[in-house]
Design a protein around this nucleic acid. Structure first.
Lengths: 216, 216
DNA sequence: ACTTGCCTTTGTGTATACACAACAGAAAAT
DNA sequence: ATTTTCTGTTGTGTATACACAAAGGCAAGT
């Protein structure tokens, strides 16, 4: 089984993304090796793979730690995410098929239900599926993969946002605007709507951090 | 020295990008280990790193080989590259500084010189620098890194294009239009000009391949 | 008390060895 | 003659061992 490195990297990825391993956490190979009951070799490969996804940072001779980007860096990442999603939305509008529209409406509805029942976790999942549908709906699988990867990288910094008051309902309204634009075949409108939708998240992230002292 | 894995990965990266190791080439660890005079361990890490850059493909239990994407895949990658560059150009126009404009004009001139002397290699280098300047000129370092990485991944499929007749002069004209738009602060014009500039490369790639039989 | 140098400890970088899966070729059976 | 199976070989996956760099603590000197 090559499953060792797969299992390790997937487990660590989940724990990083879910915040169990917060940014800055040191990942020491001997400890992980003992934890997973394997030698250091597969652990190293797993860390290398996580480094490829941009989730951890490998400093030479200084060990591995969960990536702890500066605020400016995170804002930059949200900016790129916004542009990627905008492109996806534009392509969706251009190539929209009945199936895609049905899928989008479906997830939109689930988002609505989650918002009404005030369940942030359910909303988070439905929201994620909605965005993934837009990525794939672009018709460009490479673009979809890139968007999904960046989405994953930003997850640790986005999850906390839904706890902000009224964020769910506002997000829902923005989603509706995007779907409407796609349905109308208006690429420009879909692009700007989706870009703004993501950029607001970046701004909200800034607001969120402003509540505490600024990190690095 | 951690230099072993660095040296190996950089050497292989160069050889892949320059076409010395064509797409599909198998990379066997024992052979590489002997070639570089090291054990398999650093070789494996180097291959893992190249896999992260998207230059090689790691199939489980089936070895490593230089990535050999399908034509459709390459077209998709060019499409994403076009969008990334378009965003960079738009941001350049918005944030253009005198220094950036000077740099762009400088590289534009070098492109011109290379085109006049009919030196594809020199043009290639100047062209690359021109595009890198636009990436960095976006003011978003994360975006610049992503664009540079994708640019690298596409290099094996772009180098051959400059041998096509009149491509250099046409490329030059397109560059001028982009710089003019940036200088005028017209983000929309810069965006579309740069996008078209890259998309043409993608189309040219299709033309190029059409001369032979289609690969996978 | 503070600084500076050495030493110990910890953790990474690399090498080597073993286990096993996958491919290739040959031999045997139909 | 074709197919199937067995076996040898090749190459990857993992474990273990050693080398070395870097961080931290302690002691000695100022």
């Amino acid at each position: 089984m090559t499953g060792a490195v797969d299992e390790i990297s997937e487990t660590l990825e989940t724990e990083i993304v879910e915040g169990i391993l917060p940014p800055g956490t040191r990942l020491e190979e001997p400890a992980l090796a003992e934890r997973f009951g394997v030698s250091r070799t597969p652990v190293r490969e797993a860390l290398q793979r996580l480094s490829a996804s941009g989730l951890v940072e490998l400093k030479r001779r200084r060990g591995t730690q969960v990536l702890n980007p500066s605020i400016g860096r995170i804002v930059e990442m949200f900016e790129v995410m916004a542009e990627l999603e905008a492109v996806c939305a534009r392509l969706c509008a251009r190539r929209a098929s009945p199936e895609l529209l049905a899928t989008l409406h479906d997830w939109l509805e689930r988002c609505e239900q989650a918002a009404e029942s005030g369940d942030p976790s359910a909303y988070y999942d439905a929201n994620r599926s909605f965005h993934l549908a837009i990525y794939k709906g672009s018709g460009n699988s490479f673009l979809a993969e890139q968007a999904e990867l960046l989405h994953l990288r930003l997850t640790p910094f986005r999850r906390q946002q839904l706890r902000l008051p009224r964020r769910m309902r506002q997000s829902l309204t923005e989603h509706s605007a995007v779907v409407a634009a796609i349905e109308a075949g208006d690429g420009q409108a879909a692009e700007t709507a989706q870009r703004d939708h993501i950029l607001i998240q970046g701004e909200r992230f800034g607001d969120f951090l402003a509540q505490f002292g600024a990190r690095s």
